[in-house]
Simulated assay, not measured.
Amino acid sequence: MEKLRCIVLDDEPIGREIIENFVKEIDFLELVDSFEDPVKALMFLENNNNVDLIFSDIQMPKINGLDLVKSLEKPPVIIFITAHRDFALDGFETGATDYLVKPVRFDRFLKAVNKAKDYIELKQKSTVHQVNSDRIFIKSDGKLTKILLDEILYVEAQGDYLKIVIQNETYTTLATLKSMDEVLTLPKFFRVQRSFIINLEAIRSLSGNMVELVNGKSISIALNKKEELFQLLGIR
Rank of each mutant, 00 (worst) to 15 (best):
A222G: 12
L149E: 00
F230L: 14
A175V: 02
D11L: 01
I78Q: 04
L223I: 11
K102P: 02
Q231C: 00
A112F: 07
D52S: 11
K225I: 01
V113I: 09
R16D: 00
I14S: 09
K143Y: 01
K123D: 02
D57R: 04
F230H: 06
E228T: 14
I58P: 07
Y171K: 07
E212K: 15
L232T: 04
I152P: 14
E156V: 07
K146L: 10
V211N: 06
S179G: 02
I138W: 08
T170M: 14
L177D: 12
I198E: 02
N215I: 04
L72T: 06
T170E: 15
L72K: 03
F28D: 06
S207E: 12
N64G: 05
L53Q: 11
A41C: 07
K188P: 00
P61T: 01
I203E: 07
T172N: 15
G234P: 12
N132C: 13
I26F: 03
V183E: 04
E182Y: 07
K117H: 10
M43N: 15
Q167G: 13
N64Q: 13
L100H: 01
I166F: 02
S195Y: 09
I63C: 08
Y171G: 00
K3T: 13
S71P: 05
T127K: 15
V69P: 12
L232H: 12
R194T: 10
L186D: 09
A83E: 02
R204F: 13
K225D: 09
N209L: 03
K102L: 04
M1D: 00
L229P: 07
K40M: 07
D33Y: 15
P38S: 00
V155K: 03
K139I: 15
K163R: 15
L29A: 04
P103I: 06
N224T: 13
S133W: 07
F55T: 03
R236C: 00
R108V: 14
P38I: 11
S207M: 12
E121K: 13
S220D: 02
K117C: 05
V165G: 05
I136K: 02
D150K: 11
R16Q: 06
N49T: 09
S133Q: 15
L174Q: 14
M60A: 03
N48G: 13
L68I: 05
T172D: 08
I7R: 04
R204W: 12
T82C: 03
T82R: 08
T170F: 03
A88T: 14
I26R: 04
I147Y: 09
D86F: 14
N64M: 03
T170A: 14
N209S: 13
P75F: 10
P13I: 07
Q158S: 14
N215H: 10
L122M: 05
I198G: 01
I147E: 02
I166Y: 01
D90T: 05
L31P: 07
L66G: 13
M1T: 03
E46I: 01
V165E: 08
K74W: 00
K217T: 11
R5N: 14
I18C: 02
I7C: 01
L232Q: 11
E46L: 14
A112H: 01
E93F: 12
E121W: 07
I19V: 14
F35V: 03
E227K: 13
K225E: 14
L89K: 12
S218L: 00
F22L: 02
F109A: 08
I235T: 03
S207W: 00
N114S: 10
S126F: 08
D160T: 15
D150V: 05
K115G: 08
I7F: 08
E212V: 06
E20T: 06
K217Y: 07
